[in-house]
Computed example of a mutant assay.
Amino acid sequence: MRKLFPRIRFSRKQKIVRNLVLVLLCLFLTEWLLEFPALTDAALLRRAERIWLLENTELLFTAGEDNAGMLYGRNGNLLLTVTYGRTILGKQYFQSLLWEESDGIHCSSRDLWPLEIMAFGSLEDAAWAEIEVDIHWEGNFGGRDWDTQRTYTAQGIRHNPYCFTFQLEPCFSEADTSAEAEMERAFFAGEGPGFTYQTVLRLYDGAGRMTAEKTMGYLEDIGLGWPEEETV
């Protein structure tokens, strides 16, 4: 029976060229499926700049996990974060967020409640920092109606010239069995009555003088690219 399509014979050089073309085609298709990952942090930052119509953004630092991370940048009083995933071909752009801050400092939380807070941006002149969070609980929990306010403070851990993180700690010990202690433990576990809060960031110089104060309400959660260790 005669074959419908005749067999094409390639020379050794033609086979090498064919295989090379197939490899390049596979790489292109993979790059296309991954939305053309960036090879460097600078290239990833430039991609985000094009989205926000910016230029000359300063890369402050990077942070993240094994398979994902975040770039932090500054452009005057604009602060930019770029979330990405790591692939074998580079860093895949996920999303970017932009904030306008008159003092060049932005604060975010790690979770939906303000237990861990990060401040980043124009912090290079601060010798140390502290956060104060006033939390107001209101609602029913544990068979009791709550209308309680408590203030928590935490000193910042500096990770680099542009970043502090803060960890709130409970006021009551684990051995305390009072209703207030039970409610606080529930809150730190992500439960408890409804709450609102106000946050105050204070910056200090080397002599302990306060140089700036920033009052904020709700803090947005951008916990993916969180610095995990003190790097000073």
Rank of each mutant, 00 (worst) to 15 (best):
Y218P: 08
L45Q: 05
E58D: 08
L80M: 07
L39F: 09
H159E: 07
G69S: 06
P193F: 00
A68K: 12
E180Y: 08
N140K: 13
H136C: 07
E229M: 12
R7A: 15
I131A: 11
L115D: 10
T62I: 09
L71Q: 06
I105K: 01
F187D: 01
G104F: 10
G73P: 06
V21G: 01
T83Y: 09
D176S: 05
T151D: 06
V23W: 14
M216N: 08
R18D: 07
L203K: 00
S96P: 03
L97I: 06
A154Q: 00
L80A: 03
V232P: 15
A63C: 11
A68C: 11
A175E: 14
E180V: 13
E116R: 15
L224D: 03
R12N: 10
Y204W: 10
F61G: 05
D145Q: 02
S11T: 15
N160F: 03
L79E: 09
S102D: 15
G194K: 06
G223P: 00
R110S: 01
D125V: 11
F172A: 03
W52N: 08
V232M: 13
E100A: 14
M216T: 01
L71D: 05
R202C: 04
R110H: 12
S102R: 15
V82Q: 05
R2N: 14
I16Y: 08
D176N: 13
L219H: 00
A119I: 05
D205W: 03
K15Q: 14
G139V: 02
L39W: 10
L33Y: 14
F94P: 01
T211H: 07
G143Q: 04
V21A: 13
H136M: 02
Y197N: 07
L27N: 04
M183I: 01
I8N: 09
S102F: 10
V21Y: 10
V17Q: 15
L53I: 12
I8G: 05
R47E: 13
G217T: 00
G223A: 01
A207V: 04
T83F: 08
L79W: 05
W226K: 00
V23F: 14
E49T: 07
R18K: 13
F141T: 01
A126D: 06
L53V: 14
A186I: 03
P6M: 11
E58C: 00
E58P: 00
E230M: 09
D145L: 11
M118H: 00
L22F: 04
C171I: 11
E228P: 06
G90I: 00
L98E: 02
P6Y: 08
T199A: 13
W32T: 13
A179K: 14
V21S: 10
E31W: 07
L29C: 08
Y72Q: 01
Q95H: 10
F120H: 07
A186E: 03
C107Q: 04
R158Y: 06
E130S: 14
A129V: 02
S178N: 09
M70F: 06
R185K: 15
L39T: 12
N140M: 13
G76D: 11
M70Y: 01
L60T: 11
R158E: 10
G139P: 02
F61M: 11
E35F: 14
D145S: 12
V200E: 12
D176Q: 02
G208A: 01
N67L: 14
G64L: 02
F166Y: 08
D147N: 15
E58A: 10
R74L: 02
R9N: 10
A119R: 09
E58V: 06
W32P: 03
I135E: 04
E116T: 12
Q14S: 07
S173L: 09
